[in-house]
Amino acid sequence: MVDWLSLAVPLAYLGVLIGSLATFSSLYRKRKAQKAASLEAWFPAHLQRDIYFSLMHLDPSSQSEKKTPAVPESVLKASLLRRATEDIRRVMTLRSQKNALSALLQRGSVGDDLWQRFLRAEKEMEDEVRDVVAEANAYVPGWGQVIFQSANEMLNNDLYRERVREHQEKVAEERAWWDKKKSSIQEGFMRELNEEEEKGSSGATPATPAKTGEKVPVAPAPASVQGSDDDAVLVEADPSVTSPGSPGSGAGGGKKKKGKGKK
């Protein structure tokens, strides 16, 4: 009654069609999932977080040794604080990158992958911050509200101290430079004096001019010491009085420079 033979062709057609579509869809999905999973993380491994969890999990393994006591809570608190500091740094990084990245995405300068990675990092950080707040509240009720404030100050203090340290580290370098420069200026003075003396009295032995030459550059130094002593005191006492002092010491600088200019 049914003509199976004539139906076989459309049925086979449908079978092949559905089969190929299913294969394609499953392959496509698998690849997409693989791609999403293989997306590189936005940040490197969160070291502080890893340490925190490692400390949390230290207890059971140490029971076998019997020697190591449980990790004291204060260590865990310190570790949590370090973790919060790193979180702040990451959240700040994300925030500063967001605008630039979305602008680039709109213009099509960056791929969708990058945006996906970014969104994932943002989501992760949200969870991470929530987790830290919950942990903090578990240690001391109410700490969750201030832990990120403290962490923020710690981060800024660290950055600031690093900058100051850099400035202070340059002292030795500057000092070495200045000593070298000063001695070259003095040499210039000496040479000048030598030349002048040789011109004046060609019969003099070379030893004596060298000696006087050594003495002479010392002489202007105390004079300028005094000059800037005075104005230095005045600066501390009242900044408005400094101006009379500065031309005097400016002349001192000029003197030095004149010597160099002649050389």
């Binding site: 491994a45 969160h46 890893d50 969890f53 490692s54 400390l55 230290l58 190591t68 992760e124």
Partner: peptide, 14 residues
């Protein structure tokens, strides 16, 4: 994912 972490062999000085 939030529960995944790298464990380091840490030691606490008693």
């Amino acid at each position: 994912e939030i529960d995944i972490f790298n464990e380091y062999p840490l030691h606490l000085d008693p």
